[in-house]
Amino acid sequence: MSINWYKYASPASFYFLAGRMIPYFSIAAIVLLIVGLYIGFFVAPTDFQQGEAYRIIFIHVPAAWMSMFLYVVMAFWAGIGLAFNTRLSSMMATAIAPTGAMFTFIALWTGAWWGKPMWGTWWVWDARLTSELILFFLYIGFMSLQAAIDDPRRADKAGAIIALVGVVNIPIIYFSVQWWNTLHQGASVSIAQSPKMATAMLAGMLIMALAVWMYSIAMILMRARTIILERERHTAWVAELKGITR
């Protein structure tokens, strides 16, 4: 079976496809979230070193993974939009940014909650924390640039350039921060050496990661649908959707 991908590159047909897919992803997200949180908070054993407080990682780690992954996906779609001038790709990039920024924020916030009982401090200038913070700044930069530009096509392209420049810079920033951290002989704590995990912990974490994936996809599709409607509001198919004849 071959799928005509170009068909779904049109915002009009993607709108309906996304509408059909959203319920599945939403239900999957809710189910996985409940299962994952149950495993995380009730099934997984108490960590002998970190006590109960470690359980925040079931939210923290999937959020951190997702925050980094989404930036790359965002830059990918923005780049496709810039190269092939496809409107839908750029809309996807715009739709991804707030979700990515939210996960970056969650990762930082839950990291602080984890850090307080573990290290006795809300924040350390650890390499990972610092690069996550910078990633948050990059998301904010992308979103504020797009928000400042009124013409959506210019916003798409300008956002694409800053996203691509950002994605090239992420490894540079990451290694700079890491070397900076080791040069200063860093905070004495490092989250790099994680203890071996019990199976239930690992299962909980992976299920939570999947839940976060499903949530992101559902959320991004919803936001993409809204963006499509907003941008295509003058077209005939949107008018038909509303039952308005012009």
Binding site: F137, L138, I140, L145, A148, A158, V165, G166, I172, S176
Partner: peptide, 23 residues
């Protein structure tokens, strides 16, 4: 170049550029 002619361009450019200056 990206913020050329935008409202609030001066503040915006700091958001875009300062994270890239970090290395």
């Amino acid at each position: 170049a990206l913020t050329l002619g935008l409202r609030g361009g001066g503040v915006l450019v700091s958001l875009l550029v300062l994270p890239l200056y970090i290395p």
